[in-house]
């Protein structure tokens, strides 16, 4: 079946079965490898993207359910030449090691900071608990999000 997905500001027409997960279609039809899939059961949060501005686990969502929604993946967050403040903060604080989880964390962080632009460290740690970092960079992830929050507030 034909499906139109709006991803990172662009419409894509895809011929696909409707019973595929959104993560699968984004990775394998659109080549968006920044949508990482690890557990595929909504636990690890690596596949987190935005649908209409809200963070969602794309491994638990059918592609069909994403039709008509504005999707944002890490590929649309910033690019190598102009990183998003969240990306820069993750580099500055080194909020990662292997970084498989990083895109998911950053997308969670973006949704969180839009709702809660001036968080405490504790609120940030709770908000970042929807994602797993097996390398254990959590304290630096929290610092990165706090730093990005500062930066984003200054930009406003």
């Amino acid at each position: 079946m034909k499906l139109t997905l709006n991803v990172n500001g662009r419409n894509h027409e895809i011929e696909t079965a409707l019973d595929r997960t959104l993560a699968d279609v984004l990775r394998n039809e659109l080549g968006l490898i920044g949508v990482r899939v690890s557990c595929a059961e909504g636990e690890c949060g690596s596949c987190t993207i935005h649908a209409d501005g809200k963070a969602v686990t794309s491994c638990l969502m059918l592609a069909a359910q994403a039709s008509g929604k504005k999707l944002l993946t890490v590929e649309g967050l910033g690019d190598i030449e102009k990183l998003h403040p969240i990306q820069q903060a993750f580099i500055d604080e080194q909020g990662f090691q292997c970084a498989f989880c990083t895109p998911g964390f950053m997308m969670s962080a973006k949704a969180f900071l839009e709702e809660c632009p001036n968080p405490t460290e504790e609120e940030t740690a709770i908000a970042m608990s929807g994602n797993i970092c097996r390398c254990g960079a959590y304290p630096y992830i929290v610092k990165a999000v706090m730093k990005a929050a500062d930066q984003l507030r200054q930009e406003k």
């Binding site: 690890c44 740690a125 608990s129 797993i132 959590y138």
Partner: peptide
């Protein structure tokens, strides 16, 4: 699986 093999998360370890 990661549902029943529990890994610590950000709020399970002190950020400080």
């Amino acid at each position: 699986n990661l549902l029943d093999y529990k890994l610590l998360r950000a709020a399970d370890f002190p950020s400080k």
